[in-house]
Design a protein around this nucleic acid. Structure first.
Lengths: 222, 222
DNA sequence: TAGATTGTTAATCGATTAACAATC
DNA sequence: TAGATTGTTAATCGATTAACAATC
């Protein structure tokens, strides 16, 4: 049974890694897999993997583990990746285009159906299979195609204004790639993928390693 | 004073948001800012902002807050963004190219100095200012230019092999954008930016909202 | 001065990890 | 059977939050 708060975010974040690995195992014809083995491959602790899996509700067999296929289905199900969801990309610049072409989204049940941009010369063209429309078509497109998710890939200084507009048009979730913290009403799901955040963690860890190396060198002189 | 483990990762992750906002304030000519105000703007709690700032070692003034400029410097310093670090991009596909062109890296003290790709037709060309070299030049380039950080933007099935090679060539940190969990020795800093992880959180939250809406509808019938 | 804000210490909360009985 | 693995319950750990004295 799920707890009131639902599955913990850290667990959710580990699910895609499990899923990728499980798909490899399935390809290899493996039918059962133990938490121990998954943990080994992903550099996690077995108990953590077991705990994570328990949130899917799937039960394993002592001594053998879990059915690969059922585990895949269970994870896909809790993530809500079993139904394809349409999404639009706002901003067809370098990043927006790269995202529009990204094939991995298919695995997540995400389908990019259109891109929108202010640049007139892009209208009517496309990024791979994804057509590019003018900004002004947003309202009509969202209404006609029942799009719930928008991927925001516009410059930082336009992000808030565009988000406001998306919210006004009834968008339910915004995946924000702009390097800007935007505000949306609480009913709208806002997810950030911020390069700065990710790089900050890397920087801090690199800095720590450098400093510990300096210390070791100093220690040598003793 | 820093604790033994260093600054908590959640705090590190919030620093870039503070930094962006502080720069806006600086632009506007504001000299002092309170934790209360930063919290308000970013949707955080004042106490959390104060706690985070305390890790920089900067002291504020009761009633007024912190000096904007000093706070900016303090955050840049703890993140290690005060010195420019050279980095190379491995893989000049759509994502690699978008990353190579990304201007925001400058603010983080990150400079992309070269890209490497296996595709012969790309050699000698460039992405914006960034030259593209063949894979075989990696060893020489890293040795001659003392590059410590590599941005990995290759297909998932090549990621591990390329990472192994980078590690062998003495790379200190790998920023992995490939949708694959790779293994590196513990001395190498590995940072993932995984679209699947980010989207998983979004999906789970969207799913939760949808389910709660279903419940509300059911509730209506009572 | 009065009151907003800081910084510290303690309480709370949530996730991870440990311990261990149940199971095949 | 013996032993590896599961699932649960309790302990630990770390981050967030609350409470409050200190300060300008």
């Amino acid at each position: 049974m799920e707890n009131k708060r639902g599955i913990p975010i850290p667990t959710i974040k580990r699910f895609p890694s499990y899923l990728r690995l499980l798909k490899v195992f399935k390809e290899e014809g493996r039918e059962m897999v133990s938490a121990t083995m998954l943990a080994e491959e992903l550099g996690l602790k077995p108990i953590q993997v077991r705990k994570d899996i328990s949130f899917t509700g799937l039960e394993g067999k002592p001594r053998v583990g879990f059915e690969v296929e059922k585990l895949i289905d269970a994870i896909i199900s809790v993530l809500g990746w079993d139904n394809v969801t349409d999404a639009i990309i706002i901003g067809a610049g370098h990043l927006g285009s790269a995202l529009a072409r990204y094939e991995g989204f298919g695995c997540y049940g995400l389908k990019i159906v259109a891109a929108f941009d202010t640049a007139e010369e892009k209208w009517g063209t496309g990024i791979g299979e994804v057509p590019i429309y003018p900004f002004d078509h947003l309202r009509q497109y969202i209404a006609e195609n029942h799009v719930n998710i928008a991927v925001l890939a516009v410059p930082a200084d336009e992000a808030q204004a565009v988000a406001d507009r998306l919210v006004a048009l009834g968008i339910m979730a915004i995946w924000n790639f702009a390097p800007k913290d935007i505000k949306v009403p609480s009913r709208v799901v806002l997810q950030r993928t911020d390069l700065a955040t990710s790089f900050a963690v890397l920087s801090a860890r690199v800095k720590r390693v450098m400093e510990s190396r300096e210390f070791s060198e100093e220690d040598d002189s003793w």
